[in-house]
Design a protein around this nucleic acid. Sequence first.
DNA 1: TAGTTTGTACAGTTTTTTCTGTATGTACTG
DNA 2: CAGTACATACAGAAAAAACTGTACAAACTA
Lengths: 178, 178
Amino acid sequence: MQDKRVENARERVIESISKNMDIYSVTPSVGRLYGAMFFEKDPMTLDEMKDKLQMSKTSMSTGVRTLIDLNMVDKVWRKGERKDLYEVKSDWYQTFTDFFCIHWRKGIEMNRDACKESIAELMKVMDEDLSKEEKMMAEADLDKMSYALGYYEWLNKVVDLFESRRIFDVIDKEDELK
Amino acid sequence: MQDKRVENARERVIESISKNMDIYSVTPSVGRLYGAMFFEKDPMTLDEMKDKLQMSKTSMSTGVRTLIDLNMVDKVWRKGERKDLYEVKSDWYQTFTDFFCIHWRKGIEMNRDACKESIAELMKVMDEDLSKEEKMMAEADLDKMSYALGYYEWLNKVVDLFESRRIFDVIDKEDELK
DNA sequence: TAGTTTGTACAGTTTTTTCTGTATGTACTG
DNA sequence: CAGTACATACAGAAAAAACTGTACAAACTA
């Protein structure tokens, strides 16, 4: 039988996922790969991916690597199978929190370190005799950096909230409601 | 006097901000522009920006536009000033939540709609007589889509948490602690 | 009104990213 | 051991994005 509707229904969702994977800073191609793997019953080989997406095997290799680095896909092992097998991680809640915790944390760390270093430097400079205006400038910059520091502390705690999974106390997972 | 240390301290932070603005899907150039505006005492004109960053005025124009679209910068008006003036929005907590709420919400909406449409389609197909395997495939896809839907509902509530500012009940702003 | 100043649309250039095919190293098979 | 299958490094091609200078429209000035 030739009912394309099942295929179409799946394809619609894959396409939508692909388009919206930009929140993970991923290209639509890699997004489509993710979507395809998500719906596949069994773990996929690179060759299956390339047939499915009509792209080069090299692209599949780098695409899968990208998704693994993002903690979105696992390499799985199966007895008697020579090819590498890959499947999408099944816990989307974890995938989501992993991604943002890692990226936010990195940004926070770097910016906070820069602020701290610069604040220390400015404090030192303030003790010496500077021109009136330079002193005021240093003062103003110190204020800005302190504000930034406060914000980064807050954001760090937000990341803690997700990383510690306490977020699930605040917002219940849907599938646990039944 | 020629003490470069104040300038260096500022530059270090600008550079760090610039590097980490990728979490907002913004290029380092636009990030540097944002950093420069952040430290400027007064609202800046496009010409001041171009002098500061040594880039074309066109780039400043499009860069500022980008930042305005992201709700990170405001155009401000000042009596007797012909040039347009721009300044960084002062509430970083708001900037942060705005950005992620807008982007996440968009992704959620689109994916949820796609899922709902496809689920309806598959339900309809299930009633008709299909081959055994096609029925199983539809069934499996329905499960996946239901899972996705549940996840999107959860994420929607997370966005609500930020958008409603209830997040600040869960995680206090640092500057309110004193 | 004519003459400036200012912001941006647009076209072209440079840079970066994505994608492909070939080549190579590794790990299996017999 | 040779022979095969596989993943990926690498180089080059294609596509996309960032950036610039010019041109022009709108808003202001006198």
